[in-house]
């Protein structure tokens, strides 16, 4: 049972922190820092779960999510979205686009871990 996570985040320090947490928890972590080709990268890597930042260079997290959900093979992919723009409007938009879990930065490390575990468990049960 694979535990591969794709982290799409452009802020290197945040990437490093999440990467450290997930590896410690036994996950395989791939990272990507650009929004432009994120959908293709995800589609070819076929991770079990995606952690997606909203403000990305090239293409926003919302667009990437919408494109992922439009594809048959990636419809059920669990997506945890992280945003630094603490606006409720963004949460609504993300839920409409089909986000699996939405979290606001700064987050607590345990919350992120719990969320990743839950989402992965839900995905594998169904």
């Amino acid at each position: 049972m694979s535990r591969r996570v794709m982290l799409v985040e452009d802020e290197p320090n945040i990437t490093e922190a999440i990467r450290f947490l997930l590896i410690r928890d036994g996950w395989e972590v791939e990272t990507h820092a650009d929004g432009t080709d994120a959908v293709e990268v995800i589609s070819s890597a076929k991770p079990d779960l995606v952690i997606l930042d909203v403000m990305l260079p090239g293409k926003s997290g919302m667009e990437i999510l919408t494109e992922l959900r439009a594809r048959d093979d990636l419809q059920g992919l669990p997506v945890l979205m992280l945003t630094a723009r603490g606006q409720s409007r963004d949460r609504d938009l993300a839920e409409k686009a089909g986000v699996s879990r939405f979290m606001t930065k700064p987050f607590s490390n345990s919350e992120v871990l719990t969320a990743v575990r839950d989402l992965h468990a839900q995905a594998t049960q169904t």
């Binding site: 802020e11 320090n13 922190a17 630094a84 723009r85 930065k105 700064p106 987050f107 607590s108 490390n109």
Partner: peptide, 18 residues
């Protein structure tokens, strides 16, 4: 402003928890 403030705070919180 929120984004620019939250981004370093995220790193700070994450690494201080680590």
């Amino acid at each position: 402003v929120s984004h620019e403030l939250r981004t370093p705070m995220t790193s700070i919180r994450a690494f201080s928890e680590i």
